[in-house]
Design a binder for these strands. Sequence first.
DNA 1: CTGTCCAATACCGTTTCGATCTGGCGGCAC
DNA 2: GTGCCGCCAGATCGAAACGGTATTGGACAG
Lengths: 87, 87
Amino acid sequence: MSFAQIRYFVAVAEEGNVGRAAERLRVAQPPLSRQIRALEDELGTALFSRTPRGMTLLPSGERFLHHARAILAAVDGAVRAARAEPR
Amino acid sequence: MSFAQIRYFVAVAEEGNVGRAAERLRVAQPPLSRQIRALEDELGTALFSRTPRGMTLLPSGERFLHHARAILAAVDGAVRAARAEPR
DNA sequence: CTGTCCAATACCGTTTCGATCTGGCGGCAC
DNA sequence: GTGCCGCCAGATCGAAACGGTATTGGACAG
């Protein structure tokens, strides 16, 4: 699992659509599809339900999304903490 | 920044020594050194002070360590959440 | 049946990563 | 001060991961 996968996952979850998420992330659609699938494989659980109109979160995806946002925020906090001037 | 870098950083911080951390992580020492340096470069701040007896945390490293552990815990929580049976 | 809008697969070039080997630097014994 | 040992850092190489383009396959609208 990588940070990129988490960022990708959040984008797809928010857009409900791989193509739009790819555009937003400035990456092509196939890599994004692959990373999402790799993430699901690693977790051993599907996170999205694929429909002909896009992708919608499954319950497991909903739960994961909440934590995913927390991780991204934690990373941001860590970077800030390291760079912050010690007072 | 990658999860591996964070895990590497925590191990080095805890061991105070790249060689021992490498052994614990089952990785060779040079890759570990490089990842730590890459992390510092990306953050734009040194995290360790290099001494002939090992590496000791700088204040920025101490602050980062705290957050790094939180990130690892958050990731663990995310994995569990995704895999957990919905009740 | 045809066009459209999705995600998924195939294939390729590039980048990144880790392992091995080697160098350099500071302490310590004597 | 010379030799030795522990430790980090650099160079080089082969392997794995990543992203991009081109293409396929499935569902729905008209």
